[in-house]
């Protein structure tokens, strides 16, 4: 029942998205624009500033993720469909998991574009340890989306939600971003510093566990009016 509900919510979101590709295209375009701005700021005379690549990658992920979170739930608000979903006789946490999976899929696509782009533009050896990079990206994205999905969902009925989402979200997920940036930066050093990257991966895992547990636990009372 639980996973079936989550899967149905995910499939619904994919079906809506497949009709227009609205959120996907806008998110990808925004992410690329973000990286370009950083490229102008941090590449001087053809040489990128040292260690900038890791930060740029994660900032682009966080910014475009925030945009996507806002858009996804704005769509639900428009049709009052979130209320309909909440009225359904299904475990609420399953709705959260479905929404979370949708966000993760979206950001995974964005990252698949962003990581090679950053590696190319900043001459960064991001792919010297592909498994560790994927692990860091997955851990960081999960932590970001776990809190982001919860906050975006609960902000649906708040005033000035567009401003409040990043204001509430960033202070809480910055530790996750720090772990992602430091871990990625360790991969970029020559030779790649595997031990440090693995340490940050562990910290990401700890944050993910805490944030995911809290979100699953508080989603139900938070969405009750």
């Amino acid at each position: 029942m639980f996973f079936r509900t989550a899967w149905l919510v995910l499939r619904k979101d994919i079906a809506i998205e497949a009709k227009s590709f609205e959120v996907l295209t806008t998110t990808l375009f925004f992410a690329v624009a973000c990286v370009l701005i950083f490229a102008f700021a941090f590449v001087k005379e053809g040489r990128p500033v040292e260690d900038a690549a890791a930060g740029i990658l994660w900032i682009a992920i966080a910014f475009s993720g925030t945009l996507a979170l806002g858009r996804t739930f704005e769509r639900e608000r428009y049709g009052e469909t979130l209320r309909a979903l909440l009225l359904a006789p299904a475990p609420r946490a399953a709705l959260y998991v479905g929404k979370l999976l949708g966000m993760l899929a979206l950001l995974a696509i964005a990252e698949a574009l962003l990581a090679p782009m950053v590696a190319l533009m900043f001459q960064a050896a991001l792919f010297s340890r592909p498994l560790l990079l994927v692990g860091l990206l997955a851990g960081g994205t999960l932590g970001f989306c776990a809190v982001g999905t919860l906050f975006a969902a609960m902000l649906v009925r708040a005033r000035s939600r567009d401003v409040l989402l990043p204001i509430l979200l960033y202070p809480i997920i910055i530790p996750v971003i720090i772990a992602g940036v430091r871990g990625t930066a360790a991969l970029l050093s020559t030779p790649p510093d595997d031990a440090t990257a693995i340490m940050w991966l562990g910290i990401l895992g700890a944050f993910d566990t805490v944030f995911l547990t809290l979100s699953l636990w508080t989603f139900e009372p938070l969405m009750t009016e």
Binding site: M154, L155, R157, A158, R159, S160, L164, L168, P221, L222, E225
Partner: peptide, 8 residues
């Protein structure tokens, strides 16, 4: 946050 912001 407007009404309901106590929960947020």
């Amino acid at each position: 946050g407007g009404p309901g912001s106590d929960k947020l």
